[in-house]
Each structure stands twice: as C-alpha cells, then as structure tokens.
C-alpha cells in the first residue's frame, strides 16, 4: 500500500513534464490513469497548461507573410462552398415533398423503408470499407517508408562496396606494377646468372690459355686476367683493383696489332673494383699482339685516350 502511494506520488510529480509534452509513453500512460481519478491533479494540470501556454511568447513573435492569411481563408472559403453545394444537391429523400408522404401507398412505403435500410447497410459497409482502405493505406505508407529506408541502406551499401572495389583495384594495380618490377629483376638476375655460368664454364674448360694485364700506372694496383682459346675469337677478361670512375666515364677494352687499335666493349667495375667482360674479337684472339683498358667517356670511343689503366701482351 505504502509502495503504491509512493508510486502514485512519483507519477503525480511528473505532471509538469506531462503538461510540457515531455513524458515518455510509459510514464504518460501511468499519469493519465492517475489523472482520471484525481480532480486535484486535473486542476494542477489545468494550471500548468496555462503556464506552458505562455512559453510560445518566449519566442520572438513575428508577423507571417500576408499570403499565409490569404491561403488560409481561401481554403476556408473553398471548404464552405463545397459544404454549401453538397447541402444544395438534391438527395433521393430530401427532394421528396414532405406533405406527399401521406399519399404513398403502404407497399411503396415498405419498398422505400427497405431501400433506406439497404442504403444504411450500404453506408455502414462503405464506412467499414473506407476504414479498411485507410488502414491499408497506412500500411502501404509504412511499407513504402520501410522500402525507402531499405533502398537508402542498399544504396549506402553499394557505395561502400564501390569504394572497396576501387580500393581493391588500386591495390591490384600496385601489386601488378610490383610484380612486373619483380619479373624484370628476375629476368635480369637470370641473364646475369647465365652469363656467370658461361664465364665459369669458359674459364674452366680444358685448353684455356691465360694472359695477364698489368697496371699501366704507378700507384694503381689494378690487374686483369684474360682467358682465351688460340684460334677462337671469344675471350673472357676478369679485372680487379680497378679505381672508381668519375661520373660520365667508362672503361673500354682494346685489341691492338701492327695495323692499330680495335675498339672492344665498354664496361664498369663494381664498388670493390672487380669486373669482367666477354669480348668478341674481329678475328681469332691470338692474331692480336696486345690488349689494353683505357678510361673513356660514356658510350666508348673509336680511338683510345691516353688514360691507359691496364695493358698486356698476347
């Protein structure tokens, strides 16, 4: 009982929020139940509603445009006209002069009574139909709103997927680029490996002859070893101790005989000064008298510079 009184007091204390329209549904229902049996609370509500009715004055009043008044009263006038025309329209019973009803035959009266009853039933049925249509309409509106929400969600999902797809494509392109770079590197390494294999098999084959290339400059410890087969035009030369070159310079290999110098390949050494080349002489290697290595501009020269690094007799 005490708990019940306490609940009632707690509910009643929310009368202000009720007047303000700020009660949640559950509290509102509880308060309305209490209001029904409490005249004091009803009076309190009446007073608080008057307080709340002053709150709109706290917003600065503003004169609405004249068109609002015009539209409103045009609407009212139109409604009045409609109402007047529906009143003026002849109706099956209203058109019948009252004084003639006494002349009607009983049979006709019965028919008319039946007609009126039938019309009443039809009206009730129509009303029920309208109510049903109204319910259906509300359901349809609710369904439509649901569909619109679903559509909006689907569109949002589609946008998210499109963004993910774009990101995926970008990632794919990045991977493809990296793959192409990797393939190029693999191809380069494979070519290097094939060349290394060739050099190893060349210099370790039976019958290979070697010639030494020595530094042509004092203070430079570079040296070279040339592997060749008498009667063949191919040779492999391995260098070590080559000094680093300035930018725009390369080493160039030369063959020489009595007729002059024949330009061979250009090459570079690694950072430790080691390098090798596979050379193809214009004729058999042992037909030349000597070889040398010079420093030349990038791309090589047709005639050797004076900057000779290595030289050797064949």
């Amino acid at each position: 009982m005490i708990a019940h009184d306490h609940d009632s007091a707690s509910t009643a204390s929310q009368i202000g929020a009720y007047a303000l329209g700020a009660l949640d549904l559950e509290d509102r229902l509880a308060l309305e139940a209490l209001l029904e049996r409490s005249p004091e609370l009803q009076e309190e509500l009446r007073q608080l509603r008057q307080v709340v009715a002053l709150l709109p004055y706290a917003a600065p009043p503003a004169t609405p445009p004249a068109r609002v008044r015009q539209r409103l009263f045009a609407r009212i006038a139109a409604a009045q006209t409609d109402a007047a025309s529906s009143r003026a329209a002849p109706s099956p019973t209203g058109a019948m002069p009252r004084r003639r009803s006494g002349w009607l035959l009983p049979g006709l009266m019965a028919v008319l009574t039946a007609l009126v009853i039938a019309l009443s039933v039809a009206t009730l049925s129509l009303n029920a139909g309208i109510a049903q249509l109204d319910r259906t309409n509300r359901e349809l509106v609710a369904d439509l709103e649901q569909l619109q929400q679903t559509l909006a969600e689907a569109e949002a999902r589609q946008e998210r997927l499109a963004a993910q797809l774009a990101a995926g494509q970008e990632q794919l392109e990045s991977l493809a680029t990296r793959l192409a770079a990797s393939e190029e590197r693999v191809a380069r390494l494979t070519a290097d490996l094939a060349r290394d294999d060739y050099v190893i098999s060349f210099i370790s084959a039976p019958g290979v002859a070697t010639r030494q290339l020595r530094s042509a400059r004092s203070g430079v410890v570079a040296q070279g070893e040339m592997y060749m087969y008498p009667g063949h035009s191919s040779a492999v030369v391995i260098f070590s101790g080559l000094p680093p070159l300035a930018p725009g310079q390369v080493y160039q290999f030369w063959f020489a005989d009595e007729a002059g110098q024949v330009a061979g390949k250009t090459f570079e050494a690694d950072p430790t000064g080691i390098g090798y080349i596979i050379v193809e002489a214009p004729r058999e290697v042992n037909a030349f008298r000597e070889v040398m290595v010079t420093v030349e501009p990038s791309g090589g020269s047709a005639t050797p510079s004076q900057n000779v690094i290595l030289e050797g007799a064949l």
Partner: peptide, 20 residues
Amino acid sequence: TRAMEYLYTRYARVVYGLAL
C-alpha cells in the same frame, strides 16, 4: 469566418514566432 479572422489576427504572430 470573421471570428476566425479575429483569432488569426490575435494569435498568428505568436504561432509563427513559435514555429520559426
């Protein structure tokens, strides 16, 4: 409708201010 006009004149400004 005249009574309606008077009510409109009396309260439209407050209703409009509230709605704004």
